[in-house]
Amino acid sequence: MLQPLAQNIIYGILIGALYGLAAVGLSLVFGVSKFLNVSHGELLMLGGYASFWVFKLLKIDPFLSIPLTIIFLLLIGFIFYRLIFSRLIKLEVEKKIQNSLLVGFGLSTILQNVALRLWTADDRSITTAYSGLSFELAGLRLPAVRLISLAISVVALISLQIFLKKTFTGKAIRATVEDWQSASLMGINIHRVYLLAFVIGCALAGVAGTLVSICYSIDPSMGLNWTLKSMVVMVLGGLGSMIGTFVGGIILGVTESATAFFIGGNYRLIAGLLLFLIILIFRPQGLFGTKEGDR
C-alpha cells in the first residue's frame, strides 16, 4: 500500500513541476498586462511539436533543442502580441480580461485546427535512446527523462526569479505589475514591458511543451487541458509569486495522483477543479499570494 502510494506521489510531483512551469508563464502575462491568455496551452503544444520535428527531422536531442524552442516561441509570442494582443492594452482592466479571453479563445481554435491539418490528430512523443532509463531508490522508480525535466523546470524558474529580482528590466516588470502609472513616471516604457512579459510567458510555455513531448505525449487538442491546469495552478499559488505558482503546480500534480490512487484515475480532473473551487472560496488570493490590502 505505502510503496505504490509513494510511487504515485512521486509521479504527481514530476508532472506537477510541468503544471507549475506552464502556469508561471500564464501568471506572469496575467500579472503584468491583465491578459488572460487562454491560448497558453496551444503555445505549449507548439513548443512540443517544435521539439518533436526538430528531433525527427534534424535528429537533435530534445533537451538540447530547448534553446531553439525558446527562440521559436519568443518569435511566435512577438508576432501574436504585435498583431493581436497589443490592440487590447489601452482598455480598462475588466475589458482587457474579457477581450483577451475572446481573442485567446479564437486563437486557440485556429492553432488547434492548423496543427490538426499539418500534423494529424495522432499522439506524438519523443523517444530517445535513454527514454526508458530509470533510477531505483528505496524500491521507487524515478524515470530519468522526468527527473531531468523537473531539474530543467526548476532551473527555468530560478532563472526567471533572478531576472525579476536582480536586473533593471526585471524590476521594471515587477514595478509595472504593481502600478503601471507609477512605473511609467519612472521612465519605464510600459508597452515594452507588456511585450517582454508576453514573450517570456510564451517561451516558458514552449519549454513546458518540449518537456511534455519528452515525458508524456502531445496532440493538437492538448492545449485546452493545459490552459485549464495552468489557470487552476495560477489561482492556487496566488498571483505575484512565481515560486508560489510553481509549488501550486506540484500541489495540483500530487492531488491528482493521490486521487487517482485512492478513488480512481477518472476522478483526477475533478479533484483538481474541486481544489480550485475550495481555494477560490476560502483563500481567493491563493496559497502564497498577498491580499491587495496587505501591501
Partner: peptide
Amino acid sequence: VSMVMEGGRVFAGMTVLENLELGAYG
C-alpha cells in the same frame, strides 16, 4: 521632469532600495 503622485504611490511590494533604483531607471 519628475512627478510625485498623490499618496506617493511607491512600489509597496519592493524594497526601499529597489524603489530608489527604479527612480533612476532613465
